[in-house]
C-alpha cells in the first residue's frame, strides 16, 4: 500500500531460501560473512551442515548453508532481560551491543545455536547484512554464492524473487516444532 492511499505500508518479512540441490558445501558464504562483518577468529555467523541419510549404497547427501532463522516468534528476543535483542526492519533479529550484558539467555534460548559470545563480551549473530540490504544489496553470503543456492528477499511479497521461488518450489523449515516460526526456507531436493 502506498502512502497515497493512506494505508499503513505492509511490513516486510525478510527471509532466505537455500537450495540444497545447488549447494556444494564450498563455504564461500561462511568466508564472505566473516570478511564482510569482521567476525572474530574462531566465531561464525553462518555455517555449513553436511547431512547423510540412508543405507549404503542408497545414500542421500544434503549440504545446507545455515544461519540465524530470523524467527517471527524469536525466543531469543523474549529471553533478553535488557532489550538488547530486538526485532528490526523486515523482522530481522538484531542485538544492540551497547545494551547487551552477555548473560547468554538468548544463546541458550535459541534452538538453532545461531548466536555466539563475541570476545568483546556482547552476543553477536547474523544480521542478514542489514547494512547492505538497507542499500538495496544482497547479504554478503548471498552475493558470493557461486552456485546461486541462496536467495534473500521479502517472503511476503509474491512478486519478489523470493516470493516467486517459494511459490514454485516445495520447501521445509528446520525445527519448526520449537514454535519459533523460522524464516530460513530449505527448498526440496526433489520436484521441479
Amino acid at each position: 500500500m502506498s502512502a497515497k492511499t493512506g494505508k499503513r505500508r505492509r511490513q516486510k518479512r525478510y527471509a532466505m531460501a537455500m537450495d540444497p540441490r545447488q549447494c556444494v558445501g564450498c563455504a564461500a558464504c561462511v568466508l564472505a560473512c566473516k570478511a564482510e562483518n569482521e567476525v572474530p577468529e574462531g566465531a561464525f555467523r553462518d555455517w555449513i551442515v553436511d547431512e547423510i541419510r540412508g543405507r549404503y549404497p542408497n545414500l542421500q547427501r544434503e549440504f545446507r548453508s545455515e544461519r540465524c532463522h530470523h524467527c517471527s516468534n524469536p525466543p531469543c528476543v523474549a529471553a533478553c532481560p535488557t532489550g538488547a535483542s530486538h526485532v528490526a526492519e523486515g523482522g530481522t533479529v538484531l542485538v544492540a551491543q551497547n545494551k547487551c550484558t552477555g548473560c547468554k539467555a538468548c544463546v541458550v534460548a535459541c534452538p538453532y545455536g545461531a548466536r555466539y559470545v563475541h570476545p568483546k563480551g556482547y552476543v553477536d549473530k547474523c544480521t542478514f547484512c542489514a547494512h547492505r540490504t538497507a542499500r538495496g544489496q544482497d547479504p554478503a553470503c548471498v552475493e558470493i554464492c557461486p552456485t546461486n543456492a541462496l536467495t534473500f528477499g521479502d517472503a511476503d511479497d509474491p512478486q519478489g524473487s523470493l516470493g516467486r521461488l517459494l511459490a514454485s518450489r516445495a520447501h521445509r523449515k528446520l525445527k519448526e516444532e520449537a514454535g519459533c516460526r523460522p524464516n530460513l526456507y530449505i527448498l526440496a531436493k526433489g520436484g521441479q
Partner: peptide, 15 residues
C-alpha cells in the same frame, strides 16, 4: 545411517 557433520560451525556455540 544418519550422520550430520557441521563445517565451519561456531565452536563456541555448536548447537
Amino acid at each position: 545411517m544418519h550422520e550430520i557433520y557441521t563445517m565451519n560451525t561456531n565452536p563456541l556455540t555448536p548447537a
